[in-house]
């Protein structure tokens, strides 16, 4: 009798599970782990668990697990589509933010209704750097379980607008060189030529873009360049043990 190659089967099924999960999660979009609702979180665990069974549960065929993965992904995509299209259904499915502190007063009845403890509120306020309840004007418990806090207006930081100071526009920087490679698309987007970039590099004593780890241009026209060689005389080491960081 030819022996079954268990290891090989697990490797093949692992590759199937890994890349299927990768493709399906890309389809599901850019929702960040921090923004997940409780249901999203449970869904993630379920999909992961199905992928794990697909890989190592050799007592069943891979196909039913894969169909399970596909079903959950399609269901999640449908939910996303429905909640984008119908706001009312989105509120039913995802819930809505709840005000737990209004004009400095704790909303005990609301908190009881959503089974949210006072200790939870205090923990989340401390997490936001609020140690004195009298500093809070509003606190809203978001659908992903995070607390948004609005401090009393006297305690908010002063902004240039409060002081009537004019400021320049400041937008998103463009990466022109990434890991030694010139990003031509970004250069085109900011209407600059490779020759301009070359001359800017030469001004800083850099002969070739391959010496540059990162070069980015901000909206004020300032070019930030970091080369692979940092020429630091003294490197600060914050580690206090000899093992890996």
């Amino acid at each position: 009798m030819v022996l079954l190659n268990e290891t090989l089967v697990v490797i093949v099924r692992g590759i199937i599970g890994f890349f299927t999960l990768l493709i399906f999660t890309r389809l599901l979009g850019k929702e960040q782990v921090g923004q997940l609702t409780f249901f999203d979180y449970i869904m993630g665990i379920t999909i992961g668990s199905i992928a794990a069974s697909l890989t190592v549960d050799l007592g069943s065929r891979a196909w039913p697990h894969w169909v399970g993965l596909l079903t959950w992904t399609v269901a999640a995509l449908s939910m996303q589509w429905i909640t984008i299209r119908w706001r009312y259904i989105s509120k039913i499915i995802e819930g809505e933010p709840v005000v737990v502190i209004m004009n400095g007063k704790i909303m005990e009845d609301t908190m009881k209704k959503i089974r949210y403890r006072l200790s939870d509120l205090l923990v989340q306020l401390r997490d936001k750097g609020v140690f004195d309840l009298s500093h809070v004007e509003f606190a809203v418990l978001e659908t992903d379980g995070k607390l948004s806090v609005l401090k009393k207006s006297q305690l908010l930081p002063v902004t240039p607008r409060d002081l009537n100071i004019s400021t320049n526009y400041f937008g998103i920087s463009s990466e022109l060189i990434y890991d030694g490679v010139v990003i031509e698309e970004n250069l085109k987007q900011v209407n600059l030529s490779p020759q301009w970039l070359e001359s800017e590099l030469q001004k800083q004593g850099i002969s070739h873009p391959s010496q540059v780890f990162l070069a980015s241009l901000n909206t004020t026209g300032e070019l930030y360049i970091d080369t692979y060689k940092d020429y630091l005389k003294r490197i600060v080491d914050i580690s206090d043990y000899p093992g890996p960081n």
Binding site: V2, L4, N5, V9, V12, R13, G59, R61
Partner: peptide, 10 residues
């Protein structure tokens, strides 16, 4: 069997 093992129950 070696070819089948990827698609059927062990």
């Amino acid at each position: 069997m070696p070819k089948l093992q990827f698609s059927v129950e062990r």
